[in-house]
């Protein structure tokens, strides 16, 4: 009980809400609480979760990143072209290449933000346009289908056939997602670097005076987010088995909404991996439930949006007015 209270209001409330929805759906449908449905929920949301934890780190450090989804598109295209040129490559090269390109793109954001003291929303909106525009320009919007086999083949980690003959399975993206979630938790909770990130997001001036290296903090936050975008890129290709340059365009705001729903604060210093995962799963389970209940797929988003608005209006998540750093200089 003590731990639950320490868990934080938002996480706790979200957990209750999620549990309530799960119970309700298990009672209302006989398909929700099946191994097949639950595993597919995980399979389908692994990419979102990988992005979410990456974005979480940026939010904790007091920034915001709009460019991560488009970054993933760039990563998968460049990686695909490169790997094909290399003659195929393998998983090892895939991970290294995607991780490096992603982190590199994140560092571009960090360099602009720190080097010229431009706020992150401006920089990432700009790089969003640059990344996407250049990608579409150079690729002319053409998709890549002839991917190396290792990349396009499904890697099944667990499978089970139930009595009625339905298959349920967990695939590689779930494992990668779990690793990313764990790594992020470890970074922000268990290492001194992660704690400095919190401090930086919480009170940048205080962190600077304490001797925290702000350039490294920005690089770590945006680099981490970029790295996660790289991982998400690799896994998304593994799921859809093609590289479509504009497939991920527009996903960033949904992920942002879910992460903020999970208690991360725009402005920095607040947010947990648990809340972040709960936020994404809350949206995912709601959507899944509506689907199972036979609600028209066109109504999903409307209900999700309404749920977010209601959640904001009732939870009194006092995020304060104004955006990051919006404090009049207390001289």
């Amino acid at each position: 009980m003590h731990r639950l209270i320490r868990m934080g209001q938002i996480e706790f409330r979200l957990l209750i809400a999620l549990a309530a929805i799960c119970v309700a759906l298990s009672l209302a449908t006989d398909t929700f609480l099946t191994l097949g449905n639950l595993t597919s929920l995980l399979n389908n949301n692994s990419v979102n979760l990988i992005w979410a934890v990456g974005l979480l780190v940026v939010l904790i450090a007091g920034g915001i990143d709009i460019s991560f989804a488009v970054m993933s598109s760039v990563v998968q295209y460049v990686a695909a072209v490169w790997l094909l040129k290399m003659g195929g490559g393998n998983w090892f090269f895939g991970f290294v290449l995607c991780g490096l390109i992603g982190a590199g793109l994140g560092l571009v954001n960090a360099a602009l933000i720190h080097g010229f003291r431009i706020i992150s929303i401006v920089v990432t909106i700009a790089t969003f346009n640059v990344f996407f525009g250049l990608l579409m320009f150079f690729t002319k919007g053409r998709s890549i289908y002839n991917l190396p086999d290792w990349w396009a083949d499904r890697v099944i980690l667990f499978e089970h056939q139930s009595a009625d003959g339905n298959w349920s399975e967990l695939t590689l993206p779930v494992a990668v997602m779990a690793a990313c979630v764990f790594a992020t938790w470890f970074l922000i909770r268990r290492t001194n670097l992660g704690r400095q990130l919190y401090a930086f997001g919480d009170n940048p001036e205080g962190a600077r005076r304490a001797g925290v290296n702000l350039a490294v903090m920005q690089a770590l936050a945006f680099g981490w987010c970029g790295f996660m975008a790289g991982m998400a890129a690799l896994m998304q290709v593994n799921i859809v088995r093609e590289v479509v340059p504009n497939a991920l365009y527009g996903r960033e705001l949904d992920v942002l909404a879910a992460v903020v729903l999970g208690g991360a604060r725009l402005g920095g210093g607040k947010g947990t991996v648990l809340g972040c995962v709960l936020g994404v799963m809350f949206v995912a389970v709601t959507q899944n439930g509506l689907n199972l209940l036979g609600v028209s797929p066109f109504a999903f988003k409307m209900i999700i949006g309404a749920a977010i608005l209601v959640a904001i209006s009732t939870s009194n998540i006092s995020l304060g007015q104004g955006r990051a750093g919006h404090r009049e200089a207390a001289q």
Binding site: N192, L193, R195, Q196, A199, G211
Partner: peptide
């Protein structure tokens, strides 16, 4: 907090 400052990664 000041014990956490620095770039050498270590556990908390």
């Amino acid at each position: 907090f000041d014990g956490l400052v620095g770039l050498r990664p270590r556990g908390v």
